[in-house]
Write a protein that binds this DNA or RNA. Structure first.
Length: 421
RNA sequence: GGAGACGUCGCAUAGUCCGGCCUAGUGCACCACCCUGCUAAGGUGGAGAACCCGUAAGGGUUCCGAGGGUUCAAAUCCCUCCGUCUCCGCCA
């Protein structure tokens, strides 16, 4: 939910954001209109209700013989109050529907336009090159006994897989390294629920236009989460936080579930795009004025991780039209995937400013003692997908894969993964 | 899955049977001041959240787990849902 005050007093900011995102500008005017109608209805109702309250006291304290006449009068008033109350309910529902559909106003500097209009902030490391024909991660996974997509499909269908042997160990190593990084940077680790209630799913904004990406269990009215961000954001829902001694930082470890509806035919091979994977996710609750600095910190931690994995990558400033509705800015880090000859997203970090917190009612106390919504940020620290880039980047001519130095301690010192015979 | 109890303004509780004197009482904790010579006690006052009107001072409305309903009037009566706890059953 955007700040209604911003809408009222600075609607041009919202309009400019809508343009940059390629969203409707007329929506802003509609929103202003429903806001005005909502407030008028409220005033009307409150006036009537005050009248009714006062009258109720008269009735209660009236002598018995006057009561009948007074009650008759009160009935009439009650009918008008009821009608006014319904008008308010309707007006507020309309307000929520319209204003709720406006995405978070982008931060100045976010490139306008769609997916292809991203801006590359920096390229780091080398694009791995080979003097032999490099194998892709599926072939490597098979050679190394690390990934079994055939049996994944047998058991669960397409886009499912088994991580086997060294593959399973590699994922655990990567996740553990990320967890240690998170701990070193002051994050509190959390293992989160992956099934959540509808209001939490809605509150985090995943039931908007991407609702068909989400697994839903009708028998229990629960949603499977596509990222622990959902549970991490819901963690402090309806709370007033004390941020006086600094931000609250959490690292959520969870399995993630995604339907990948509409991506049929895309990335069918391997484990690049799958229905289920593991992820360590950073999540920060900060003062609104600290959000942009925190965003830079998060992207910094992500870069440390990619560097530790000795991957070549670029950091991009995602264009406005490609942001989720909650994000005011998003940085993606894409690693070089040799067999695809292109960069593929390994991490994403979003600054949701106060948008998500307003919807989930997460606040802090300002110096004047008032409450105000906090800012929330999230970012990937490691996921199963990283194995794709790690395997392909560090492969050797015979199909062996060199283990990045930083990862070796998590594999009992193993420096090269060799093909199984 | 069965049976039962419960959910009140930070915490703990009163109020619910019998609807209106509840603008929700009390204790603890908290803040300010007063008093007091000693790691304290006592006194007075203040203090929740959201929204609306207003430049402001201030005024108003809503909130007793959530949502409906009955009623002139609901913390209180009725319904649905959510959650917590206890006992039994079942279970990887």
């Amino acid at each position: 939910m955007i700040d209604p005050q911003l809408l009222r007093e600075n609607s041009d900011v919202v309009r400019r954001s809508q343009i940059a995102r390629g969203d409707s500008v007329e929506l802003v005017d509609t929103a202003l209109d429903v806001d005005a109608r909502r407030r008028a209805a409220l005033t009307e109702f409150e006036t009537l209700r005050a009248e009714q309250n006062a009258f109720g006291k008269t009735v209660a304290s009236a002598p018995k013989e006057d009561k009948a006449a007074l009650v008759a009068q009160a009935q009439e008033l009650a009918a008008r109050v009821k009608e006014a109350s319904q008008t308010v309910t309707d007006a507020e529902a309309e307000f929520d529907r319209i204003v709720g559909s406006i995405a978070n106003p982008i931060i100045d500097g976010v490139p306008a336009g769609g997916e292809e209009n991203f801006v590359t902030l920096r390229e780091v490391g080398e694009k791995a090159a080979f003097d032999f024909e490099p194998r892709d991660h599926v072939d490597l996974g098979e050679l190394l006994g690390a990934i079994d997509v055939t049996r994944g499909a047998k058991v669960s269908g397409s886009r499912f897989y088994f991580l086997t042997g060294i593959g399973a160990r590699l994922e655990i190593a990567l996740m553990s390294m990320a967890l240690d990084k998170a701990l070193a940077e002051g994050f509190t680790p959390l293992i989160t629920p992956t099934l959540v209630r509808p209001e939490i799913m809605k509150g985090t904004g995943f039931l908007g236009e991407h609702a068909d990406e989400v697994y839903y269990l009708p028998a229990d009215d629960l949603y499977l989460t596509g990222t622990s961000e959902v549970a991490l954001a819901g963690f402090h829902a309806d709370e007033i936080l004390d941020l006086s001694s600094g931000p609250l930082r959490y690292a959520g470890w969870s399995t993630c579930y995604r339907r990948e509806a509409g991506s049929a035919g895309k990335d069918n091979r391997g484990i690049l795009r799958v229905h289920q994977f593991n992820k360590l996710e950073m999540f920060s609750y900060v003062l609104p004025e600290d959000a942009e600095a925190e965003h830079e910190r998060l992207v910094g931690f992500q870069e440390h991780m990619l560097q530790a994995c000795e991957l070549g990558y670029r950091v991009i400033d995602v264009a406005a039209g490609d942001l989720g509705s909650s994000a005011a800015r998003k940085f993606d880090i894409e690693a070089w995937v040799p067999t695809q000859g292109t960069y593929r997203e390994l991490t994403s970090t979003s600054n949701c400013t106060t948008y998500q917190a307003r919807r989930l009612d997460i606040r802090y106390r300002t110096e004047s003692g008032k409450t105000a919504p906090v800012a929330t940020l999230n970012g990937t620290l490691a996921t199963t997908r990283w194995l794709v880039a790690i395997l392909e980047t560090h492969q050797l001519a015979d199909g062996s894969v060199r283990v990045p130095k930083a990862l070796q301690p998590y594999l009992g010192g193993l420096d090269v993964v060799k093909p199984v015979t």
